[in-house]
Design a protein around this nucleic acid. Sequence first.
DNA 1: GTTCGTGCAAACGGTTTGCAACAAT
DNA 2: ATTGTTGCAAACCGTTTGCACGAAC
Lengths: 140, 140
Amino acid sequence: MALDLQETLRKSGIRPSAHRLAVAEYVLTTDEHPSAERVLERVTGRFPLLSRATVYNTLNLFVQKGLLRELVLAEGNVVFDPKLEPHHHFVDDETGKIDDIPWSALAVGDPNKMAGYQIREYMVVMRGRKLGRPRVNKTR
Amino acid sequence: MALDLQETLRKSGIRPSAHRLAVAEYVLTTDEHPSAERVLERVTGRFPLLSRATVYNTLNLFVQKGLLRELVLAEGNVVFDPKLEPHHHFVDDETGKIDDIPWSALAVGDPNKMAGYQIREYMVVMRGRKLGRPRVNKTR
DNA sequence: GTTCGTGCAAACGGTTTGCAACAAT
DNA sequence: ATTGTTGCAAACCGTTTGCACGAAC
């Protein structure tokens, strides 16, 4: 835990203001895939003096500095992902919720073997239903 | 070519009005990946009496009836794809242009083997640069 | 004292909606 | 007559921008 956020920001050339730290604390450690609006909601919970503009500014800054990736997987809903290593994504048809799928879970041929393209990044995007939890020991 | 569009619409339970046919003629046969705005532009070229609302209505209707798929690959840009068979997509970093990549071009492990998910569809999304055309015989 | 961060409200751009007119059956 | 289709303009929603103030260096 508690990797030093202040340090992280500074290393990326971002001055660690209180507001930015508040945003970072949530968005750089979550495994949800929050939209800007959700970040605002979450962060203003504990930090009510934070404006919408600042959240957007901060998120864009983080993306630009490489601390965050933007995902566009559903209409009108840009979403942020602090997990920088390659991985795949599953999008639930009903809830829209996104799951990270480990790179190792799915063998994918190397697209850089395709002539004519130089691939910077790639991922499998899956859509469907998430099945009910296996219900291990909840029979009573 | 010239598969009977009127027939196609009717088979999907869509009454083939003139406007719908005009939209269909472009969007069901293109290999671009047009946004609604682009469809409007293209279709009003030859059919100036067509309103924005009708284009949006028609596109949504086509999607709902399964003649078209919606792709959301870039921010603020929903795009339509008449190619219904499974295939992958490449998005050019610079131009935003989308290429269809044949299913056969890339081996992908079956995600339905992953426990806990029932996958309805999946595709590889690749981003990067498209290299200059191979320049086969253009030396003079 | 210049640069940087922030809040506010307005602007923006793509999409949807309400409503009234019209066409098809 | 009823139902389906269209155009127009306004509404909508997430995001960006302009500007003015205040804090950090």
